[in-house]
Design a protein around this nucleic acid. Structure first.
Lengths: 117, 117
DNA sequence: AGCATAAGTAGGAGATTCCCTACCCGTCAA
DNA sequence: TTGACGGGTAGGGAATCTCCTACTTATGCT
């Protein structure tokens, strides 16, 4: 678990990792079908395995997946901690859509955080 | 407001827009200090204005900011809808950190979504 | 030992990103 | 109307991304 202090480089790595449909699909597969070896993941993509390997490396370096060796297979598993951090990052923005639903948006948009009680 | 159907290209644009520290800082400034013209934003960055203009364009095309012309100024405003979508995208992953905190992580990691009640 | 399989690394091509300088367009003020 | 100002567009260069094919490494099977 990371502390609240936002390491910019780390944040960059997570957002950049997520900025690719293939890598987001890998995360979805790991979430819905559980940990699996590379080949099983690869079956879902129209892409050579080395390319997928590089995507997995990006995800690993962002801390979004971990690998566990089992024989000659490597089982990839979802690691959600960076996504929890992402939710934390999102929190200060929440009022911008919650308030808007209550019809207060236009007012609050013009009001800095500091002025709120 | 987007529907629940995830437009991949749109999602890509939002994640890609967020995968840059300058652009995230722009969003933070708009959130904390309210809508402002380009020059005021530019004061916070060690970067020429044309470069910032391009960052603003990326944010605009991701739907994360809107501009409103006022005389020869253009006032940029935070648009949080894509961030609300991002929070929705995050939801199915929540159990991976909530459950882990309860010590159920290892079990659920191995269990597909479909098997859950 | 000898071969097959799982998956990573090396290196390269083409596209994209991010910054720059130079220039253009619209608006306000003298 | 002429100039200054706010801000965008054009085009280019260095770095990075994303895919590929070829090759390497490690493990398991016979």
């Amino acid at each position: 678990m990371t502390t609240t202090g936002a390491d910019v480089a780390e944040e960059d790595r997570v957002f950049a990792a997520l900025a690719n449909a293939t890598r987001r699909e890998v995360l979805r597969l790991l979430r819905e079908e559980g940990p699996q070896p590379v080949q099983t993941l690869a079956d879902h993509f129209d892409m050579r395995r080395p390319s997928l390997s590089e995507h997995l490396k990006v995800l690993r370096e962002a801390g979004l997946v971990s690998e566990q060796r089992s024989g000659r297979q490597r089982i990839y598993r979802l690691e959600a901690a960076p996504l929890a951090d992402l939710q934390d990052w999102l929190h200060p923005y929440e009022r911008f859509w919650r308030d808007r639903l209550k019809g207060l948006g236009a007012l609050l948009d013009r009001m800095p955080d500091d002025d709120r009680t």
